[in-house]
Simulated scan of single mutants.
Amino acid sequence: MGKYTITKDLRDVQRIEKLVLPTNFPIGPIHAYLVFGEKLTLIDTGLKTDQAWKELNIGLERLGLKLTEIEQIVLTHHHNDHVGLLDWILEKHPTVPVFAHRDTLTFLQDEDYLDWTGEFFKTLLQEFGLPKEMAYKWAFRKRGRTLSNNLEIETVLQEGDKVPGLSDWQVIETLGHSQDHLSLYNAKDQMLICGDHIIKGMHSGIFLDAPLYGKPRARPLIQYFQNLEKCKNLPIKLTYSGHGPDIDHLAEVIKATEENIENRLQRVINALKKANGSATGFEIIQDVYRRRYEKAVITFVFEIVAVLDLLEERNIIIAEKTNGVYHYRLVDY
């Protein structure tokens, strides 16, 4: 069975199979998981590409399974490398129920929300200090529905829920990477399926989602720290991540992740010191990322916005708005 062999061969432990599906992203392949509970459950689906679709079907075949034998699907979050193949799965297997966070469907398909998203990011980017043309370009880039199907969520999952058909698994809301991110915890076997919440040896990334209809913008890095603490305190022997290797010492990986974040905070503090204690977000990005920022402005905006949120919450900086643009000032400078 090659890479599709049982990932943890322990007697009386829930059987989980990993499907390694290619992406065109620097982070590498995405991991979808088959959990053999009361119902055969697919956790996430992979990016919508011909190669990922081929690998998904090859992986099922190697396990002696057909696509139509999957009895339910659970989505950890709405990012396209985790949900994209759902379109093609539903074409072949239209009756399979899909479970997800209460907001996942909005992020994927709500046309009014998607239109509002562009306007929200245009304002945010301009307030962050980006020139108007650049702000418009990145706010409205290739934005649209991730799925072409009119998806229906069979069951909305939230904190503390048991997953139907997987009675040993409980839902943990792990917001931060996205605003609909779920992880699944098996207390009996002390296992965690964490999507992109924790990735060993990699920066899991903090992404901004436009707020839902009149709600304030989330502070994702603050959420992320809180939810790392939530996972740190659980008895967990093995963690299955959406990318990278399995994690068998979760507390150590969480500590390394937190240290990485603290280093990013210090880089922003250093950039502000070089700017005599005050700068716009765009000026910070230009200093911290220099030659790299122009190719992926939105990614770096998301990261630095999140870092600035945390610095502000810790009373290290103050945000002051002048002529429609925020300037971030070190409190003790």
Rank of each mutant, 00 (worst) to 15 (best):
D115Q: 05
S178Q: 11
E259W: 07
E258M: 14
T41P: 05
A306H: 05
G242Q: 13
L34Y: 15
H243D: 02
G28I: 02
P94N: 07
V35W: 02
I254G: 12
K54S: 06
N233Y: 07
R329I: 03
P22R: 08
K237G: 14
W169I: 05
L157N: 02
N233W: 08
S167G: 01
V301P: 03
G160H: 01
E283F: 06
G118W: 08
E313D: 11
F300C: 00
V13C: 11
F121C: 03
A275E: 02
V253K: 09
E154S: 15
G281D: 00
Q170V: 13
G160A: 04
L10S: 03
R145G: 08
T322W: 01
T95Y: 13
V156F: 09
N186R: 02
I269K: 15
R15D: 07
Q226N: 10
N263K: 15
K18G: 08
Y136M: 02
W53L: 03
F36V: 15
V13P: 06
I254V: 14
V156W: 12
D110M: 08
L42Q: 04
E294D: 14
P22L: 13
V297I: 15
D110F: 12
L130D: 00
Q226S: 14
R290S: 11
L75N: 05
V307I: 15
L125S: 06
N260Q: 04
T146L: 15
A218L: 10
D246H: 11
G64I: 07
I284G: 10
I58G: 04
A100P: 09
P26V: 02
E71D: 03
A52K: 04
E229Y: 04
K215N: 11
W53E: 00
I73L: 06
Q158R: 09
Q286G: 00
I58L: 10
Q190L: 14
L124W: 03
D161G: 09
K92D: 02
M134W: 12
D246R: 11
S204D: 10
